[in-house]
Amino acid sequence: MSHLRLLNYDKQIDINIDENIDFNHLFLTATYRQLVLASQCILTIYDLSSILLGEKFNNLYEKIIIPNSILALTSTTDRIIYVYRSLDNLIELKICILHTKHEEQSLIIESLNIDEKIHLCSLDDGTIFIGYDCKIFSLTNNQWSFDSKIKKICSGKEHILVLLTDGRIFTWGNGLHGVLGLGDLEPCSQPTHIESLSNDVIDIAAGGWHSLVLLSDGSAMSWGWNNDGALGLNSSDKDDVSGVFCDPTLVTCLPLDVDCIHISAGARHSVFIGSNDHVWLCGSNKHGQLGNLSLFSIEKGTTIYCSSWFTFLISRRI
C-alpha cells in the first residue's frame, strides 16, 4: 500500500489520493495553494489553501484528462506546467500552462524518442525550459547543447541547475544571494560549469534562493542564502553562518558517520535523508514544513519532496 502525507507542524496529514494514480509512474509538484499529481493521462489537483489559512485540510480536488500521457510536470508559485506529446505530430511537444487561464504552446524536437526522458522546469517569471537528450530548449527561442546527456534539471525562483550524466553541473540565472555557486553575485545568461565541484555529483536540488548537491561519496554541499538556515550548516556562538555563501560548502547537519542518500529543497527549507533512514530538516518553518522536530526517522523506501512552502512524504509499497 502506498501513502502520500503532508508534513504540517506536529502532524503528518494523509492525503487520500485517487486509487487510479500509479505511484511507480508519478509526477508531483505544488504551487502556493495546490498539490498537483500526474499519472499517465490524468492530472489531479488538490486544494491545500486551507492548510495555509490555518483551517481544516480541504481534500477536494479537480481532475483533468490529458490527450496523451504526461511526460513532465513542474510548477511555479502560481502556475502549473506539464508536457505531453502531440497526437498529430510525433516530434511535437505540447507545453500546457494552468494559471488564470489555460495556455498551450508547442515545441518541435527533431528525432524525438518517446523513451528518452523529458526534463522540465520554470522560473518564477514564467520562463520555461525543456531538457531532452543533450539539449535544453527555452520557449523564448534560446537553445543550448552539451557534450553529455542531461540527467536532471531544476530551478529556483531565478536560477537553473543542470546535472549531466558525467557528473558535471551547469548553472545560470540571477546570481543574487550567491545561488549560482560561481563565487560571486553576478548574473549569468547562459549555462556555466561550476568548476569548484568535482565530477561526482549524483543529484541536485534548487531552492528558492539556495542550491544543494549530493555527491557519490555520501556527502552533500550547499550554497546561496542561509538567513533561514536552509543550507544545513551547523553553527556555534563563534561561527556565524547566516548570510550568503557564493561557493559550494559542505553540509554539516548530518553526523560524519552517516551518508546522505537524498536531498530536496523548498523556497527556504531543505531536507536531507541519511543512510540510517533519519531525516534532517532545516530552514524556515513558517508554514509548518519542517514539522515540530528537526530530526525524525522514516520507513525504508520513503522519499521526501519539498515544494516551495510544503514538505511531502511519499511511501511506495508493493
Rank of each mutant, 00 (worst) to 15 (best):
C246T: 15
D228H: 13
D239Q: 15
T252C: 04
T192G: 03
G207R: 03
D217L: 09
L214D: 04
L197R: 09
G178P: 02
G243S: 13
L180M: 08
E195K: 15
V213Y: 04
L214T: 03
E195M: 13
N226S: 09
W209P: 00
G232C: 06
G243T: 12
A205W: 05
P248H: 12
N199R: 08
P191D: 08
G218E: 02
D257E: 13
S211Q: 08
G183K: 11
L176H: 12
L197G: 06
P187I: 07
V244D: 03
A205Y: 01
D259L: 02
Q190V: 13
H210C: 03
I204T: 02
G243C: 15
G224A: 00
G175M: 04
L182M: 12
G243D: 10
L185R: 08
L212Y: 06
C188W: 09
L256D: 12
V244N: 11
C253A: 01
E195V: 07
S236P: 12
L176S: 10
V213G: 00
A230L: 08
G178V: 07
E186G: 04
S222N: 10
S222V: 07
L212F: 07
S219A: 08
V251R: 05
G218F: 14
K238M: 05
T192P: 01
S196I: 15
N226W: 00
S235K: 14
D200R: 11
V251L: 02
P191S: 11
L197P: 01
L212Q: 03
V251K: 01
N199L: 06
W223G: 02
W223P: 10
S219I: 12
L250R: 14
G207M: 00
D239S: 14
A205V: 06
E195Y: 13
L185Y: 10
V258Y: 05
